[in-house]
Design a protein around this nucleic acid. Structure first.
Lengths: 161, 161
DNA sequence: CCTGACCCTGACGCTTACGTCAACAGTCGC
DNA sequence: GCGACTGTTGACGTAAGCGTCAGGGTCAGG
């Protein structure tokens, strides 16, 4: 076993997360992924939570097409929510303040939700166009290829209705 | 009016498509967008069809997150379909051959369809996670903020079930 | 305490997708 | 056929997001 505790060296963290060591260091430089611990000698030690954060980063990057600056904003939001949760748990936080905190958490998620939904909508329009083309070709095929030729012009999505 | 015919100079084409002149030239260099015509002096002249192709390129780029190489492949497919359509209309093409051509057209679209659908699926998982978080917070809010604190750990999508 | 595996910090390189500028050429209305 | 505008081809610049060294330091096992 390599880890003195449950923490991983950067090599293991890299291979488990699928990212490169260079990327992990770079993301740390940007303040995106900070390893939970460091050895006295200055070696990075990653926790499972760190790996989860890496996975999330890659998801935002590849699925949503966010750049690292946008991802930083998302992370800032989520880290803010962590703070809120901490304050939420504090003894000297009353019910009204707690409602505020939760409301803010909801807002942050709602904003991200809209972005995601817009993207899904666009992709679905795209898919709809594709299906329309497919169906037309399929009909021509089913009809035993009659005189009616398949007409088509490559056009951008959103052309239905 | 600028155009001798229905064709546009690169400036007009750029401002109408929303792309830059530089981008149009660059895309042409990569073989992605070739203006329909050129003047005897070598000036590019863009047709409406060219603009549609530009719009499609930008869609693939921004919506699907494809890079120019991937877009080139999509365009190659579509251009192949154009050829197929041309052959389809030819007099000396018999019914069997036509069926083949249509079948190939369907295949090309099906492949692209899968890519798009995978992406939509991933985004929907993402959205589902987001909604789950929202609902949990909302419930806590509706329940008048009881003792049960909102538990949460930022985790990658695909964690439902 | 020593070796081998792992890791550190610069620092420069590279790719994609254009932006920008220079120097020159084509087009069009009058 | 001239001026104003528009366009052309290089060529170099740039920004993001890392890759890839060099020249060391760290750590666990024996």
């Amino acid at each position: 076993m390599t880890g003195g505790e449950g923490l991983l060296g950067i090599g293991e963290a890299a291979s488990r997360s699928g990212a490169s060591e260079r990327a992990l260091r770079y993301w740390q430089q940007l303040g995106l992924i900070t390893p939970t611990g460091t050895t006295p000698g200055g070696l990075r030690r990653y926790s499972e939570a760190d790996l989860a954060r890496v996975a999330r980063l890659r998801e935002l990057q590849e699925l949503l097409g966010f750049n690292l600056e946008e991802i930083r904003q998302v992370f800032d939001n989520e880290d803010r929510l962590e703070e809120l949760r901490a304050e939420y748990h504090s003894e000297q936080t009353d019910a009204a303040r707690r409602r505020e905190l939760i409301a803010e958490g909801l807002q942050v998620r709602s904003r991200l939700r809209e972005t995601v939904e817009a993207k899904i909508g666009a992709l679905q329009r795209f898919l709809g166009d594709l299906d329309a083309q497919r169906e037309r070709l399929q009909r021509v095929l089913d009809d035993g290829v009659p005189g009616g030729p398949p007409r088509e012009a490559a056009q951008p999505a959103g052309s239905r209705r």
